[in-house]
């Protein structure tokens, strides 16, 4: 019994690392640009397909293809900021919400047209390997993904706390006016924030590929998890998003273990609704002045 529990917790933590990459991206964009990116999951999907094609066409290992998916998605992020998001900044909620929502819809359905709804998998030499520690079973692919996810999160934290650009981002996410006083060009900060957030999503995609199938709708699972994690972890807070993501992974895994295979999402949504119910009103996303 204890062993089953421990195993479920480990499974949850491992996948939670991936959720963290997605959540941190959502949080970063929300903090800096004040936009909720409904399409964040779709960039995970793009990352997965990039790794899938590199693996099947050129035999490149998905973990190695991180070196491609991250920069590609960084550029996509900058372009999206420049051509789309910039145009709705300062407008009301409707365009802000539905622009990224439309983007999500577009990417998903374009992928359906291009790639069909079929599941694509990449089988690596370590896909089926696992460590056994005591009675516990730790799949190599998931462990690698988790460790790299933590390294990337740590790198982002260091970036945000040591570089000028990173500090500018933190300032921007605390107070737009302060950032302008410091003479920072907000457009550049926004573009980099989008770029980094998308690169993290792309990294999540590549890291998933050795053990998770790619299909056009795959991003929705991750983006929903990210939204919940971000609400749980207080908006705009990177560490909060990280911890909440790990917790979400564990909650989901416990749900699957003890309630049933398809109940992971129920648990997660219930968690969200319970959090909303218990929180003082208007905390997350509240804009009362």
């Amino acid at each position: 019994m204890l062993e089953i529990l421990a195993q479920a917790v480990i499974n949850g933590l491992l996948i939670g690392g991936i959720y963290a990459l997605v959540s941190i991206g959502v949080t970063l964009i929300f903090g800096v640009v004040k936009i909720v990116n409904f399409a964040q999951g779709e960039f995970v999907m793009i990352g997965m397909y990039i790794s899938f094609f590199l693996a099947t066409q050129f035999g490149i290992d998905p973990i190695v293809s991180l070196a491609v998916s991250m920069p590609v998605l960084f550029v996509i992020g900058v372009l999206i900021q420049h051509f789309l998001i910039r145009r709705v900044l300062g407008l009301n909620d409707l365009p802000q919400i539905f622009l990224t929502f439309a983007l999500s819809l577009l990417i998903v359905n374009l992928s359906l047209m291009l790639f069909t709804a079929n599941y694509r998998t990449v089988h690596t030499w370590y896909s089926d390997e696992a460590f056994r520690v005591g009675g516990l079973y730790i799949p190599v692919a998931k462990l690698v993904a988790f460790v790299l996810a933590m390294i990337l999160s740590g790198a982002l934290w260091i970036f945000l706390h040591t570089t000028d650009l990173g500090k500018a981002m933190r300032a921007a996410s605390q107070n737009r006016d302060v950032a302008q006083l410091m003479g920072i060009n907000p457009n550049r900060v926004f573009a980099v924030a989008l770029g980094i957030a998308l690169a993290l999503a792309g990294a999540a995609g590549s890291l998933l590929m050795p053990f998770y199938p790619a299909y056009p709708l795959v991003g929705q699972v991750f983006v929903l998890m990210a939204f919940v994690a971000v609400v749980l972890g207080t908006l705009g807070n990177v560490i909060g998003a990280l911890i909440a993501s790990l917790l979400m992974g564990v909650a989901e895994s416990l749900g699957i273990q003890f309630i049933g295979a398809d109940s992971g999402l129920i648990v997660v949504f219930m968690l969200l609704l319970i959090t909303l119910a218990l929180r003082p009103s208007g905390l997350a996303g509240g804009r009362r002045r």
Binding site: V36, Q96, V228, L235, S263, F269, R279, A284, G286, R287
Partner: peptide, 26 residues
């Protein structure tokens, strides 16, 4: 859901509809 404003209200409404669907599935 009305405890939240803006995009988080939207997300909460998505979640409630999904929970209902999952309940009927389950």
């Amino acid at each position: 859901c009305f405890r939240l404003r803006g995009p988080y209200f939207t997300i909460a409404t998505i979640a409630t509809a999904q929970v209902l669907m999952l309940i009927f599935l389950k």
